[in-house]
């Protein structure tokens, strides 16, 4: 049966298989940490090289890093507002860089060549744990931002502009992390699966446009994640009149 053979093909892609690390009582997805350490290490090396010798007339890597910094600042400033964007810029920037590096690293590096006893290496953002961790951090951040900036007046936001909004605003606190995590997880996993299936079925040429589409999606997802995180923080610190 075709359906069954398709399933076995998927099984060959090892969907949902993990490399388990057992530390005491807790179990970890080892492949997620391995790829994230490699990618973040590369990112940190790249940044250290770029900021090693900072000059007033930027050259080479410093130029690129300054462009990146400016891009993140603009993102944070437009979403959070002039007053507090400085406090949140490192967090927004880290989210953007982490998601971007994870997505692109997952798509660009041929991880499949490295054989693991179980599971396979891939984008860390294709694991639900990573995206939920990021989304929960965003939730904690906007609560903290709202409370630290406005104190208890933060909760005025829930009845703004009318108290009818209260249930919806409470519901939003749950849907925000849910949508953030599942959007990122779904997009990256879907991209990996599509590329994986296409490579499995037609190993030549055909997967290449899909791979480019995947790179595009990956960059867009990083931007969307960072922009939404900044928007939620901005919403929490915004003053209502």
């Amino acid at each position: 049966m075709f359906f069954n053979s398709l399933l076995t093909n998927f099984a060959a892609l090892e969907v949902g298989q993990h490399l388990y690390w057992q530390i005491g009582n807790i179990r970890l997805h080892g492949q997620v940490f391995l790829t994230s350490w490699i990618l973040l290490g590369a990112l940190l090396v790249f940044i250290s090289l770029g900021t090693k010798k900072m000059e007033n007339d930027p050259k080479g890597l410093q130029n690129l890093l300054e462009f990146l910094w400016d891009y993140i600042r603009d993102l944070a400033r437009t979403q959070i507002g002039e007053k507090v964007y400085r406090d949140w810029m490192p967090f927004i920037g880290t989210l953007f860089l982490f998601v971007f590096v994870s997505n692109w690293g997952g798509a660009l590096i041929p991880w499949r060549l490295i054989k693991l006893p179980s599971g396979e290496l891939g984008a860390p953002t294709a694991d639900i744990n990573t995206t939920i961790a990021l989304a929960l951090l965003v939730s904690l951040s906007y609560f903290y931002a709202g409370l630290s900036n406005k104190g208890w007046r933060y909760f005025e936001y829930y009845v703004h502009p009318t108290p009818i909004m209260l249930p919806f605003k409470i519901l939003e606190d749950f849907t925000k992390p849910l949508s953030l995590s599942f959007r990122l997880f779904g997009n990256i996993l879907a991209d990996e699966l599509v590329v994986g299936v296409l490579v499995f079925l037609v190993p030549l040429i055909l997967p290449i446009p899909v791979m480019f589409l995947g790179l595009f999606t990956s960059a867009i997802q990083a931007l969307i994640f960072a922009t939404l995180a900044a928007y939620y923080i901005g919403e929490a610190v915004e003053e209502h009149h």
Partner: peptide, 14 residues
């Protein structure tokens, strides 16, 4: 395991 296998990876990643 599985796609929605949530475990200690989450807090450690956070």
């Amino acid at each position: 395991g599985g796609l929605f296998d949530i475990n200690a990876t989450l807090p450690l990643m956070a």
